[in-house]
Design a protein around this nucleic acid. Structure first.
Lengths: 124, 124
DNA sequence: ACTAGTGTTATATCTTTCTATAACACTATA
DNA sequence: TATAGTGTTATAGAAAGATATAACACTAGT
């Protein structure tokens, strides 16, 4: 995984794990990789992984079991809500950015349509 | 202007000014507000403003004139390119985020369409 | 010349993030 | 009960970002 040096790593790890959960790579109740393993995989320090997990635990998406591991919540509704929140957050950010450039609603839609079309041709 | 505490302020200022240029609030050749004034308006330190400007100058979008002020480049083509880059960057980020959630191209389009529709109803 | 307005640079200090390293706490199983 | 696997916490140091404050450099107009 590559990190954007403009955003705290712990924050990107959090988003990365949320993505994997919403995408279904990590199912309800699944055990996460061990913190030390995650640290190795992501080439970061254990404390940095822990910082991300601490927040996810506080938000109720991860349930820690000391000595056993960290587990994805078994609360399906919570994950559904998370997905909707992510979709809304990303859509809102995209809309606001283009709106700030004075693009109309129609032009905003066209922008993403055009991007998707071009993408199909030259796979970037 | 509100800052996102997850991203360096100087970087957000840079994007903010690029937005104002692309949106046409700042025209080709226009003089920018004085650095001290910008610092007051954005409630940040002069050095922070200067850090943003330094990079914009290095990228050729701002032309500094010591003792007179900072000016938007008069190179129209450069601004056009900037607009396209911004559109592409934002579209790409949006696409990748939703693609990582395993949404299809069609679903990605629907997501932004739905957002825009809902937005019209309850103005958020 | 002086002055007001402007850009530019420097210093010291604070905060946040990240790191390396180590130790401690708990669970499951041989 | 020993041990391997796991989570948790702590300390000290490095690096980046932001701040307050101050000084220096240039321009334009009086």
């Amino acid at each position: 995984m590559l990190f954007d040096d403009k955003v705290p790593i712990y924050y990107q790890i959090k988003n990365y794990l949320y993505h994997r959960i919403v995408a279904g790579d990590l199912q309800l109740g699944d055990k996460l990789p061990a913190v030390r393993q995650l640290a190795v995989d992501l080439t970061v320090n254990v404390n940095t992984v822990q910082r991300a997990l601490r927040e996810m635990i506080a938000e109720g998406y991860i349930v820690p079991q000391r000595g056993r591991g960290n587990f994805v919540t078994a609360d399906a509704a919570k994950i559904t809500t998370l997905k909707h929140e992510l979709l809304r957050t990303y859509s809102q950010a995209f809309y606001r950015q283009l709106h700030a450039l004075k693009l109309s609603d129609t032009e905003i839609l066209q922008a993403i349509e055009t991007y998707i079309e071009k993408r199909r041709d030259a796979d970037d």
